[in-house]
């Protein structure tokens, strides 16, 4: 199979999954208890507003027509009107997306840098006490509830020592002219330290364990033995030869990790009052702001699906057997 065919097939598959998830989302919110109108119309809207929304989403039409109208609106980026904010859901969700993405990527980069180094180290120290203690310890960090770790860090470093702020993205009253000014401000990064630490401690286990087992595989390959026979130092063998080859599959897992992390962000964003998609989803669901809940869910799902695609393509690119089949 040609590379183009593989990419085409993957894109088609992704489009199918996206459509399926959108469909599930549509029916989930239509079949919920209460009036089907509740998904789009707040009882507090004025009769004119209600009538306008009825027409916009075709809520007086049969379900299949509503579904088509919903798809059509979605194509045009129309996700409805938030009950709480009285503003288009799409606007609100897009405004929160950067906060979530910055948090996710920063924490994963920290987690991967640490995980790759520590994983290589543990593979090198195979059979030693360091490894015998290290591996169960890493498994234990995977077993932590992320929000509990966040609570602990908050109690110790924010409320206890007073080193870090307790939540949000900026000090009360601080204003920034542009989003860019906010994201590049020291305050923003200061506020992000504890959430990043929380997510990073939880996420480092995956790259660490992957790196370790890849390293152990690679170290048994002929070219590593060759390098040893040539008399290269252990350090040189580990870094120059084994680590480079073990690294590629770990990098592929980064995309998958982004997808997983963005779902888990829901709790950590809530603990740290981080204004991202996850916290917004929780708030929207508990205040019955259904259009906003659908929008936030859809946005998170899109990131997950895109990251699955990226992982598939990376995997195909790195492993020639997939394209050569």
């Amino acid at each position: 199979m040609k590379a183009i065919t593989v990419i085409g097939a993957r894109l088609l598959q992704t489009a199918f999954v996206l459509l399926a998830v959108i469909t599930i989302l549509f029916f989930m919110f239509r079949l919920m208890p209460g009036s089907p109108l509740a998904a789009y119309i707040d009882p507090n809207f004025t009769p004119e507003q209600q009538a306008a929304l009825m027409a916009r989403f075709g809520l007086d039409q049969p379900l299949w027509r509503q579904y088509l109208i919903y798809l059509g609106n979605l194509m045009q980026g129309d996700l409805g009107e938030s009950f709480f904010y009285r503003q288009p859901v799409a606007e609100r969700v897009l405004a929160l997306l950067p906060n979530t993405l910055i948090l996710t990527f920063t924490s994963l980069i920290v987690a991967y840098v640490f995980g790759v180094l520590a994983g290589a180290y543990l593979a090198w120290k195979r059979g030693s006490v360091v490894e015998q203690v290290g591996v169960p310890l890493v498994l234990t960090t995977r077993a932590m509830p992320e929000f509990w770790l966040g609570m602990l860090l908050l109690a110790v470093f924010s409320f206890g020592m007073g080193w870090f702020p307790a939540g949000g993205t900026r000090p009360p009253g601080a204003e920034y002219d542009t989003l860019w000014a906010l994201y590049t401000s020291a305050d923003f990064w200061w506020h992000m330290t504890l959430p990043v630490l929380t997510l990073a401690i939880y996420s480092q286990g995956l790259p660490l364990l992957l790196m370790r087992s890849n390293m152990m595989d690679v170290m048994r390959e002929d070219f590593v033995t060759m390098a040893r026979i040539k008399g290269l130092s252990t350090f040189s063998v580990v870094i120059r030869h084994a680590a480079r080859n073990a690294l590629l599959p770990v990098m592929t897992s980064f995309a998958i990790a982004v997808g997983y992390q963005i779902q888990g962000n829901v709790v950590v964003e809530t603990v740290f009052s981080w204004p991202g998609l996850g916290r917004e989803l929780v708030r929207a669901v508990s205040t019955a702001d259904y259009p906003l809940a659908q929008g936030a869910f859809l946005m998170i799902a899109v990131v997950v699906i895109l990251m699955n695609l990226v992982a598939d393509l990376l995997y195909a690119a790195l492993d020639p057997r997939v394209t050569r089949e």
Binding site: V17, V21, V267, G278, F297, V304
Partner: peptide, 15 residues
């Protein structure tokens, strides 16, 4: 494939 496209925790919350 579709199940892999559903964000799990958000799904549980909505459900």
């Amino acid at each position: 494939d579709v199940a892999f496209g559903i964000p799990f925790l958000p799904f549980v919350i909505v459900l």
